[in-house]
């Protein structure tokens, strides 16, 4: 199953290539626009309309592609109608996570609903691998429903961190090795920890 590492690796490649292409284009333009042999040229209106069409296509295509290729988008959309195999209730107050248990075990390939409530400020709820890369996150807004449905496809041990600023006292809202996913056929190579929880 596609996870955030796969998506971010793809993004790295695509955006790096795009950046290099754009920098090259402007360098070329800069050199050519001052080229003493350059002749003024009028661009046809049709070129402009093709360009605008391409922009619209790209703008819409990004979202269509990610909807079809990134599994958590559909889960997010349908989370009200999907039945969670496990619900993890977490409360945050005074810059502290209150967990149902110090270590939370999660089953592979089952829907897990993280239901997080804030008793005071706006916080974040983020799950991170052992190498600190992000698995997923959501905002935790007081007075609102903050529910994130997720399906883990790899075995691993994950950290919990607040992903939103809640004042200087919230700067270190970080608990290591809170979640352990088991039962998958594949290990998350960035989230392996020696020894058991």
């Amino acid at each position: 199953m596609t996870d955030s590492v796969d998506v971010l690796n793809m993004l790295k490649i695509v955006y790096t290539l795009y950046t290099l292409a754009v920098i090259s284009l402007i360098c070329w333009f800069g050199l050519e626009v001052v080229n003493p042999k350059g002749k003024p040229r009028i661009v046809k209106a049709s070129t402009f309309y093709v360009y605008v069409g391409a922009l619209i296509t790209v703008g819409v295509a990004i979202h269509i592609v990610t909807f079809n290729k990134i599994p958590w988008v559909e889960i997010d959309f349908k989370r009200d109608s999907l039945k969670a195999a496990q619900v993890v209730n977490i409360t945050i107050e005074d810059h502290k996570f209150m967990l149902p248990s110090p270590k939370i075990e999660l089953k592979c390939n089952e829907y897990v609903m993280f239901d997080v409530a804030s008793k005071d400020l706006t916080y974040g709820f983020g799950i991170f691998r052992q190498n600190n890369s992000m698995v997923t996150q959501m905002q935790v807004v007081p007075g609102s429903k903050n529910d994130l449905m997720w399906k883990f496809g790899k075995n691993g041990v994950y950290h919990l961190r607040s992903t939103e600023y809640s004042g200087p006292k919230g700067a270190h809202m970080y608990i290591k090795d809170v979640f352990e996913v088991t039962g998958c056929t594949e290990d998350d190579k960035y989230s392996q920890k020696r020894g058991s929880l």
Binding site: I23, I62, I70, V73, M134, Q137, T163
Partner: peptide, 25 residues
């Protein structure tokens, strides 16, 4: 112009429900 050619697509990328889940903040 180069700055906005780089920054606007970066913004469009993060304004995607799939990518925002791992890029937000």
């Amino acid at each position: 112009i180069l700055g906005f050619m780089l920054a606007v697509p970066a913004g469009i990328i993060q304004a995607d429900m799939g990518l925002n889940r791992i890029l937000h903040n």
